[in-house]
Simulated scan of single mutants.
Amino acid sequence: MKCFEMKPGLEMDIIVARDVLGWRYSTEEEYAHLRLSTTWDGMRKVIEQMQRKGKCLTIINNLYGTYDVKFSGQKVYTRLSDLPHAVCTAAILTLEV
């Protein structure tokens, strides 16, 4: 499944944890507590890691309840209504995970 088709939750959290943050756990259950794509604290961890990789974040809060999000190096914005989900999607797309 392509990342822009993924819903926020465990599947996306596993990809973000492994490929964006570099975290490794031995079982899927160990990833369940992360909530990277569904919470503001999870989103903060992703943003901080991307900043360490030299990627700057742009967020545009649209009038219609959506956010346009991209990291430097990404050609197009990710538009979603949930900001943590949008940030995680943009991070995956930027790193071409």
Rank of each mutant, 00 (worst) to 15 (best):
M1A: 13
G73K: 10
V97T: 14
L21T: 02
E48K: 08
V16M: 14
T89W: 02
V69C: 05
Y31E: 08
T39P: 00
A91G: 05
I60P: 04
T39R: 02
V20P: 07
L63H: 13
Y31A: 07
L10Y: 01
I60S: 10
E30W: 08
L36W: 01
P84S: 07
S72R: 14
S37M: 00
K75C: 10
D68L: 05
N62P: 06
H85A: 11
V16S: 13
K7G: 07
I15V: 13
L36P: 02
Y67I: 01
P84F: 04
I14K: 08
A90C: 09
Y64G: 09
L80M: 11
G9T: 03
T58M: 12
L57E: 01
C56T: 13
D13W: 04
L36Q: 01
T94L: 06
Q74A: 09
L93S: 11
G9Y: 03
G22A: 09
L34G: 02
T39E: 04
A86L: 01
L10W: 00
G65C: 05
Q51S: 12
K45L: 10
L95K: 11
D13K: 07
S72D: 15
Q49H: 10
M6I: 00
G54P: 07
H85W: 14
V76L: 09
M12S: 03
R52N: 13
E96A: 11
E28D: 14
Y77R: 06
L57Q: 01
K55M: 02
P8T: 04
S26Q: 12
L10P: 00
